[in-house]
Structure formats: structure tokens, C-alpha cells
Design a protein around this nucleic acid. Sequence first.
DNA 1: TATCAGGCCCTAG
DNA 2: CTAGGGCCTGAT
Length: 278
Amino acid sequence: MIRRKQENFDLAQICRSGQCFRMKEKEEGFYSVIAGRRYLELEQQEEDFVFYCDEEEFFDFWEDYFDLRGDYASYISGIAPDDAYLKRAAEFGSGIRILRQDLWEMIVSFLISQQNNIVRIRRCIENICERYGEKLAGPNGERYYAFPLPEALAGLAEDALIECNLGYRSKYVVRAAKAVAEGTCDLEALGRMSRKKAREELLKLYGVGEKVADCVCLFGLHQLDAFPVDTHISQALQAHYKRGFPKRRYLGFRGVLQQYIFYYELAGASSAETAQTR
DNA sequence: TATCAGGCCCTAG
DNA sequence: CTAGGGCCTGAT
């Protein structure tokens, strides 16, 4: 196991920021994550963390997975001093990191996310994993399911995943699996593309629109400049940036700021405002 | 009972 | 190109 002190890193915030649907808070301060075929348990107390894995696995995988070498303090200090709203949002979600998750998994997750709520998104994904993913055992015998490979879904009927509660999104996922399995959509190549090109390629997938494509760029390709605009972000931008969000200023890390805003609107803004008006 | 949840597709005009 | 209807499902 690895002990580590880390600033700007908070598992509860990451868990609730709606980017990783396979991370769970089991108890206060105690979490588990499934990534690819891996399973990790970890603990947090303030800025002290315990990763229940050996040193090799930590430095080979989890350190990058959680983007612990990223300098999030610099993103936050880059915020315009007179932008009180953004400063508040960043302060509220200052422990968020953009994880380096698996590309295929992100494509499926954000196909499922459309017109959907987070609780159900998680359930859909667990259903798919339990039904089509490989059953594995952790170091202490914990049972868990890997995310199914494209090949495991490519042969399904387009409506097969309705059983997993995907509803009309079933055909989106099955078609995406086919595209990847057949090579029409080349995951390796996507990883080497510019943001613009990657976005363009992703948009060719049935069921992937601009919002989902940007989420995949941000969370699956770690393109921190991608800025997904959903209904919440759109409303927040209209309310707080009448002249438009200063995209130019934040070139290169707009996606991080997007996450601060998203999380703030989701978890913080309402309570903060009632506190303010009181 | 109607509306909405981290949209997208398709068809008309 | 823009507008608007339809879509699975569960929660409020």
C-alpha cells in the first residue's frame, strides 16, 4: 500500500463530479474504483491518502489515472481575479481532477448519459458490466466486473441493451461497439489526433453529438481544452457570462473549469445561494 | 398526470 | 440552417 499527501485532490468531489461512473464511496472517506481490468480501494483523510496497491502499480497506473502529476493549482490561479463566480466554483471543487479513463468506456458512458440522470447512468453501466464484462477477483477476493470490450457487444441485436435499462440508447452503444470492432472507428488513431479531428471522428458515431463528443475528448482523451456544454453549463454561462465565457483566456484548460462549474451547479450553487440570501 | 434528467436523430420549411 | 417532435425509463 502507498501513503501519499496530495493537494487539490478530493475523492468525494471526483466521485460526485459525474465523470467516473465506476467509482464509489463505500463509507465516509473510503472508496473503490474499477478501471479496465483493475480494481483499487483507497482512503482519504483531508490531504492524506492511502492507496491499497503496491508501489509498482501505483506509479505504473494509478498516479496517472488520477492525474496526480497535473498542476491544478496553476489552473485555479489562472482564473481572472475579477471573476467571483468562477473563483467560487473552483474553490468549491478544488479537489476535482480530470481522470485518465479508458476511451472506449468513456464513449459508452457518455452515450448512455444523454437525457439521463447520474443514478441511472451508474446503474446502466453496472448492468452492462455484470451482463457482458469479465468477472474478476481483486487481491483480497473482491468480486467485480470489468467493462465489456467492444467485441463483447458488437454482435448484439441493436435493442439487446434495453434489458440493461439503456432504453433508446441501446442501439447507439451496439452500433458504436460494431464500429470499433470492425475498425471503422479506430481508438488508437483517435488517441493521436488533434482535438478538432478527434471530435470530427467521434461525431460520425451514431448517437454521438457535440456534447457527448466533447465529453469523450475531455474524459477519454484527456484533452483538457474540450469544453462540453450541457443544459446546466449552458444555463450557468447565460446567468454569469452575459458577454460569453472568456474562452480565449483559458485556452488549454477550459475543460477543467467546465468541471468546476458543472460540479458547483450540481452540488454547491443551490446551497451556497440559500446561504448567501440568508 | 406532466415534466425533466449532463442529447441526438430525423424530417420539414 | 433552424425548429420541433420523438425517444426509454424512473423520480418528483
